[in-house]
């Protein structure tokens, strides 16, 4: 156990130092990413205003709050991409990682969670700017703040599992880009990334309850933006843990089959 903790701490420290070197590049990336929620926000505030101030239960101020928190959740949701897995498998760089006495996923998780600290620091001025422009309405309790802090890390781990599984399809076929795009399309609709789930038709909302996507976007955002009872917060985080366990178990199974399949050399 101790060697894992040491490994995680060192990896995180390395990634913080590395990513801070590229802060300008990181900033370009983050600003580009902010365009997406700003577009959704503008469109939905326009609709809310046209309808006399509310659309799907959200006022423009609440839409602003939703999409500003969205930007942080989205940044927390950045994990080692399936395209990265594709590259790693196709180019054979995985061979090198297999030499280590530890599952490669540990390095991914540790490295990206270190990066998050840089991202959060860079995110703060952007959030202030967006709040100044779009005037969000917040009503946050201590309980919700704590739940949010846990939920964003839960979202990070769920998405790590999902996207790693997706990337590991490359072990069997190299034509993966269309599969990835299909996944991202589904996630966009079913996670609350495009619009708050409450704006979706009822059957889509029902469907999303049984899928992992909404626990990576809608739930963490709503802990802060919506009003939830403590039971709901605990149940939500419990569901996140359930999905992390399910994801990790499937990953483990798939990994064992996949590694027998792996034949690339290089790295």
């Amino acid at each position: 156990m101790k060697r894992y903790i040491d490994f995680y701490l060192s990896s995180m420290r390395i990634s913080i130092l590395q990513q801070f070197q590229y802060r300008v590049a990181n900033y370009f990336y983050m600003i580009g990413m902010i365009a997406e929620p700003v577009i959704y926000l503008v469109v939905w505030s326009t609709i809310a205003n046209q309808q006399g101030g509310v659309a799907g239960g959200y006022t423009p101020g609440e839409f602003a709050a939703y999409y500003i928190v969205w930007t942080l959740v989205r940044n927390m949701n950045i994990v080692f991409t399936p395209y990265g897995w594709e590259w790693r498998i196709r180019q054979g760089n995985l061979s090198m990682e297999l030499m280590r006495p530890m599952h490669p996923i540990h390095n991914d998780i540790a490295y990206f969670s270190g990066w998050k600290f840089v991202v959060i620091i860079l995110w703060l001025p952007l959030a202030l700017f967006l709040s100044w422009v779009f005037k969000p309405t917040f009503d946050i309790t201590w309980m919700e703040g704590i739940a949010f802090f846990i939920a964003i890390w839960g979202a990070y781990l769920i998405r790590t599992m999902l996207l790693s599984l997706l990337g590991m399809i490359t072990f069997w076929t190299t034509r993966v880009s269309a599969i990835f795009e299909l996944y991202f399309g589904l996630e966009l609709i079913l996670s609350g990334r495009l619009v708050p789930m409450t704006l979706m038709p009822q059957w889509v909302q029902n469907l999303s309850n049984y899928l992992p996507f909404k626990w990576t976007f809608f739930f963490p955002i709503e802990t802060l933006v919506g009003t939830m009872f403590i039971q709901e917060l605990v149940a939500g985080i419990g569901t996140q843990i359930l999905w992390i366990v399910i994801g990790a178990s499937i990953l483990n199974l798939v990994w064992r089959a996949a590694i027998k399949q792996f034949s690339a050399v290089g790295g």
Binding site: A25, I31, G32, M33, A35, E36, I39, V42
Partner: peptide, 28 residues
């Protein structure tokens, strides 16, 4: 020298064209 990340910035801004620019606030 290193401008690869500008591609992402440009893609983000181009996505704004999905809607008529009239819906956006003046500065945008």
């Amino acid at each position: 020298i290193r401008v690869n990340d500008i591609v992402n910035l440009f893609e983000g801004l181009y996505a704004a064209g999905r809607w008529p620019v009239g819906v956006y606030p003046d500065w945008l």
